[in-house]
Design a protein around this nucleic acid. Structure first.
Length: 593
RNA sequence: CGGGGUGUGGCUCAGUCUGGCUAGAGCGCUUGGUUCGGGACCAAGAGGUCGCAGGUUCGAAUCCUGUCACCCCGACCA
């Protein structure tokens, strides 16, 4: 069984191929745990794979850990194939590294600080490892001749999430595969990024996941420098926007929208001031004036590194700060303080508007086609009606600065659809953010010192597992893709005290094990119903039933978890048939490069 | 951090409003028996400081105060 010499292994790591239920540990339950809300959480607990230890902190029981190991093995194979080099960095890190990169503040309370002791101060638990890898690179990589290089690790990350939730989808401690590429120029980064992108597609395909790569909010370099890998599921907490023609997909934080048409208007109303005492929100004013939010202009004041600006969006739209930052070409964008707002508009918060305002104004495209709008009067307790761009204020800068909503179209004109989804991977181009901050330089061909051009590539192992369950389950339990199932084959020996039955089941188990197939033999002295229910719950993809009845005809029953269809196969050909099925079930990854 | 909810054997829950015998049920577990192709049945058992700490009371799972934990919604999420 375990670690028997000569048996095939997964990913270079020994994993028990064959296992008998009575010698393993699978504490399944009938009852649904009361504090589990999403299917993956409920099913992992019921299947005896997972045990919650604290909020956002879980133990993987043997069965669950097998799946995790399968995921791990696939990732290792693909990372290695893509030329990344595995190493391992510490979870405990000196806070000084984080001070160097300037991320102590950026991470805020998410960064776990260990309590200081007299003999050891300033230790944090790594939520990610850009700082450590950059420190390693600057210590050892001194020449362009050592580049490009890509390091990766599979490590436990710690983030003190304000609110862990949805089982293992959002936890305080989780496993991540993170890779970091180092290049001498942007072209090299593009190559590294592309390699990782394709490796990610192969990993997720091999894991059997219905994923989609989408444009993500980009890193400091801008452009199309970032992609997220998403699995559509109600249990997710992100939104993916995709065009119906399938050509475009992006995170909702990123998704570009087509300009709205100008529907025109009968005539321009005169500009008028109306008293709106205490009505400082779109909702309040909308109700008071019986005016649709879509006919109002929302005016938001922001501060940035070089000053103040106002963003205008339609009342029913939201400002997208990332888009605004790009259109405005500013850094460090943040909402203005009430004091700044009052100083800029001359009114209390809630009555800002573009008319007679002496400040930089960025106008969303949707606002440029509004007529006779309502907006703040820059005078406390007053709004303006009949506001028209061109006549009442001048548009000098405009663009797409809002978040996409239902009804929007892609830039190509295809209607946009919104799907709730979970992010299982994220790749992006860092550029010199960390190498600059941490002075990580090498000597280029001219002997000149230059910062590394970096990329980083993350993947959540626990989420991959949970996403697979979210995507593949039914009312009876999990339906694993064969590649990440705890076992490929689940043998139910129905009459364990019958020598013929147990002999046949054990032979099949041994044959499959010897052939390198992961096989679980349910050899418990339980009634058939119990075994079938547990088999469905655990969800191994291929089930073989060995029972007295069928065996009297010399056959066993082989079926797939996903469709329940069963075929009777002569016992002596069962192993061969199972091996065929394993191959048939194997997801086909795109060709390696 | 704001709002809502829940803490009672390993699990799912009842009991709390209206304080009162020895704190219950189902599942699971142990033993014996009958069963045996979709979560069996009978019988006998083991197992609980009622989250924790104070308080009120002759008497607290139940009322009061505080506190902790967990879940959900929101905020947050390199």
């Amino acid at each position: 069984m375990a670690g028997r010499p000569g048996l095939p292994t997964i990913g270079g790591a020994a994993i028990c191929r064959g296992m008998r239920w009575t010698r393993f540990f699978i504490p399944t339950t009938k009852e649904t745990p009361h504090d589990a809300a999403v299917p993956s959480h409920v099913l992992m607990i019921r299947a005896g794979m997972l045990r919650q230890v604290a909020a956002g902190s879980y133990a993987y029981l043997p069965l669950g850990y097998r799946s995790l190991q399968k995921v791990t093995a696939i990732i290792r194979e693909e990372m290695n194939a893509a030329g990344a080099i595995e190493l391992h960095m510490p979870a405990m890190q000196p806070v000084e590294l984080w001070q160097e990169s300037g991320r102590v503040e950026a991470m805020g309370s998410t960064l776990v600080h260990l309590p200081d002791k007299a003999f050891r101060k300033g230790t944090v638990l790594g939520p990610t490892h850009e700082e450590v890898i950059t420190d390693i690179a600057r210590a050892y990589v001194h020449s362009y001749k050592q580049l490009p290089i890509n390091f990766y690790q599979i490590q436990t990350k710690f983030r003190d999430e304000p609110r862990p939730k949805s089982g293992v989808l959002r936890t305080r401690e989780f496993l991540m595969k993170d890779a970091y590429s180092f290049d001498t120029d942007l072209a090299g980064l593009d190559v590294a990024y592309d390699k990782m992108y394709r490796a990610y597609c192969r990993v997720f395909t091999r894991c059997g996941l219905p994923f989609r790569a989408v444009e993500a909010e980009s890193g400091p370099i801008g452009g199309d420098a970032s992609h997220e890998f998403m699995v559509v599921t109600d249990a997710g907490e992100d939104y993916m926007v995709r065009s119906e023609d399938g050509k475009y997909a992006a995170n909702v934080e990123r998704a570009a929208v087509a300009p709205l048409p100008d529907s025109g208007c009968a005539g321009l109303d005169p500009l008028a001031e109306v008293h709106t005492p205490g009505r400082s929100t779109i909702d309040d004013v909308s109700r008071l004036l019986k005016c649709e939010p879509a006919r109002m202009i929302k005016s938001i004041v922001y501060q940035h590194a070089d000053g103040i600006l106002m963003a205008l969006v339609r009342g029913d739209h939201e400002v997208n700060e990332a888009k605004l930052r790009r259109v405005a070409g500013v850094k460090g964008l943040a909402p203005a303080t009430p004091e700044q707002i009052e100083k800029t508009t001359g009114a209390k918060v809630g009555f800002a508007g573009p008319v007679k305002l002496n400040a930089r104004v960025i106008v969303d495209q949707a606002v440029t086609v509004m007529h006779n709008a309502v907006t703040g009067a820059n005078k406390t307790d007053y709004h303006l009606t009949g506001v028209n761009a061109g006549r009442d204020f001048v548009i000098t800068e405009s663009g797409d600065i809002r978040t996409a909503v239902a009804g929007d179209r892609s830039v190509d004109g295809s209607p946009l659809a919104f799907d709730k989804c979970i992010e299982i991977g994220h790749v992006f181009k860092l550029g010199t953010k960390y190498s600059d901050a941490m002075h990580a330089h090498y000597l280029d061909t001219n002997g000149k010192s230059a910062p590394f051009i970096m990329g980083c590539y993350g993947m959540g192992l626990n989420r991959i597992m949970a996403a697979a369950i979210e995507a593949f389950h039914d009312e009876n339990g999990i339906i694993w893709p064969v590649t990440i199932a705890p076992f490929s084959v689940h043998i139910c020996a129905l009459d364990v005290r019958d020598e013929a039955v147990m002999g046949c089941a054990a032979r099949l188990h041994d044959e499959l094990e010897a052939a390198g197939v992961d096989v679980l033999l349910d050899d418990r002295d339980e009634r058939p119903g119990v075994k079938f229910k547990d088999a469905d719950l655990i969800g191994n993809p291929i089930r073989v039933t060995v029972g007295k009845r069928a065996l009297a005809d010399g056959v066993v029953e082989i079926g797939l978890r996903r469709d329940g269809e069963v075929q009777k196969i002569p016992a002596d050909r069962a192993a061969a048939r199972v091996r065929e099925l394993v191959v048939e079930l194997m997801p086909q990854a795109p060709a390696s490069t």
